[in-house]
């Protein structure tokens, strides 16, 4: 349990990279890229956790020493939303590539020759 979250983060990143390397469809590739991004969120959140931790929200109780670290949460929060927007931009690139070349296979899209 001491290192399990870090191992899971490494596993998710490697699984996503494998998906990117062996992908035969551009949209599948973009989704695997978002999986790789999510592995960094898991790593960040599990770094800031404290045993018996409570959320860093003090709306109904005084601040305690057991609240988990709020800074990594702030980083991850904006990262999630912005990452989804960048993924949408990559999907737009895939759509335009399909319009131009007629296929989404990365093998067939190699032709950038004039």
């Amino acid at each position: 349990m001491d290192v399990l979250p870090y191992v899971v983060a490494a596993w998710v990143m490697l699984v996503g990279l494998y998906g990117i390397v062996t992908s035969r469809d551009l949209i599948h590739l973009v989704i695997c890229l978002s999986v790789v991004q999510s592995s960094t969120y898991v790593l960040l959140i599990s770094i800031g956790y404290k045993k018996g931790g409570e959320p860093p929200v003090f709306a109904d109780r005084p601040p305690t020493a057991r609240a988990v670290d709020p800074i990594v949460q702030a980083l991850t929060l904006t990262d999630v939303v912005v990452g989804a927007t960048v993924t949408a931009m990559l999907l737009a690139i895939a759509v335009q590539a399909h319009k131009r070349y007629g296929s989404l296979d990365p093998e067939k899209l190699r032709a950038m020759r004039g």
Partner: peptide
């Protein structure tokens, strides 16, 4: 995995910045 060995154990976060902000 070798680099993760250097991190503090899960649940023993030690950074002071977060505690100060809380």
């Amino acid at each position: 995995l070798w680099s993760f060995g250097g991190l503090p154990d899960f649940g023993h976060y030690a950074g002071p910045y977060g505690d100060i902000l809380n």
